[in-house]
């Protein structure tokens, strides 16, 4: 059986908020390394991978591998009943029909108990090899979100170019064009506010802004975001948490 306790409900609430607009139904795979998820969006253009590691739980017990088939819209309805500071306990049998969720406030005088019906989800998994990326950019997640939002008002696509000069986001649309260039600017006192660029080789790729704006809903998970790019492979956007991560992979747009 599974029994997993999070000190703060906000962790799972933020993860679900981050991915619910990209995927609807997905398996939460529970095993002795924690709770993992991998799912593609309906159009098979983007992929999300999430890992909440056992170290992030106040209590974690999972005797055998359990797949929890969850509709994220339904899960979000139940999670709305949890206050951010509530302790959350997830429980499921070995072949569960339902996931039990218990929310307890810090004063220990309120216990909320919910059951979420589970589904059988036959999900395709992709093997993603360890990749040496041509360019890796670490920057404030809020700034990345702002750039994606601003450019999405002008165009459907953004060209991302990483060179030794910096990383340039540019787009062209019906009303005009726009570009934002970030230069390497490490902040010694507050590393989460700095921008670092590791460049092995110049990279130039084009991506759909609709997806990037969607990924930015994970900005609440981390002050920083890591963007990894290589020519002709999907972009990797990673939000790292204290004990886990949410990663998004996005296929580039290609010239015919």
């Amino acid at each position: 059986m599974l029994e997993a306790r999070l000190e703060q409900s906000s962790v799972l609430k933020k993860v679900v908020d981050a991915i619910k607009d990209l995927v609807q139904d997905c398996n939460f795979d529970c095993n002795d390394s924690g709770i993992q998820l991998q799912a593609m969006d309906n159009s098979h253009v983007a992929l999300v991978a999430m890992h909440l590691k056992t170290e992030g739980f106040a209590l974690y017990r999972c005797d055998r591998n359990i797949a929890l088939g969850i509709n994220l819209v339904s899960l979000q309805k139940v999670l709305r009943a949890a206050q951010n500071e509530d302790v959350m306990t997830l429980k499921a049998e070995d072949s569960p029909d339902a996931l039990s969720l218990v929310f307890e406030n810090s004063e220990n005088d309120r216990i909320s108990e919910y059951d979420l019906k589970l589904m059988d989800i036959d999900q395709e998994h992709l093997g993603i090899p360890e990749t040496e990326y041509g360019a890796t950019v670490k920057m404030p997640s809020a700034e990345f979100q702002r750039i994606c939002r601003d450019l999405s008002l002008l165009s459907e696509s953004v060209a991302i170019e990483a060179t030794k000069e910096g990383i340039k986001f540019s787009c062209t649309g019906d009303i005009g064009k726009g570009a934002v260039t970030l230069r390497q600017n490490p902040n010694v006192e507050k590393p989460e506010l700095g921008t670092t660029i590791e460049l092995q080789e110049p990279v130039a790729l084009t991506f759909s802004l609709k997806y990037l704006v969607n990924f930015c809903k994970a900005s609440g998970l981390s002050n920083t975001v890591t963007i990894s790019l290589s020519n002709e492979v999907p972009l990797l956007i990673e939000y790292e948490m204290e004990h886990g991560y949410v990663r998004f992979y996005l296929a580039p747009k290609i010239g015919d």
Partner: peptide, 14 residues
């Protein structure tokens, strides 16, 4: 013309 590639084209199904 630019077209959208699929993520499945890059990674192997397991």
């Amino acid at each position: 013309k630019i077209s959208q590639a699929k993520i499945k084209a890059y990674y192997t199904a397991i």
